[in-house]
């Protein structure tokens, strides 16, 4: 695995970890039990997608 791939892999694992934290951990119960608007889960989900896009985009700009 090249150094660039290894760096991208680390980013991927980080994102996956954040995803697990948001959607498969006690934190999931916490935001589900908040009396927020009905679209709160979708907003959190959109924020996560934005994060994935940003980190992937950052990597792509560094590609030669």
């Amino acid at each position: 695995m090249s150094r660039q791939d290894a760096a991208a892999g680390s980013v991927g694992l980080l994102l996956f970890g954040i995803g697990l934290l948001l959607f498969a951990s006690p934190l999931t119960l916490w935001w589900a039990q908040r009396s927020g608007p009905w679209y709160l889960p979708f907003a959190i989900w959109a924020g996560f997608i934005l994060l994935v896009g940003l980190l992937n985009g950052r990597r792509r700009r560094n590609d030669l």
């Binding site: 991208a8 991927g12 694992l13 995803g19 697990l20 989900w45 994935v52």
Partner: peptide, 9 residues
């Protein structure tokens, strides 16, 4: 979504 977050690995 979680699977695609693991795209690089």
């Amino acid at each position: 979504t979680l699977a695609f977050a693991l795209t690089p690995v």
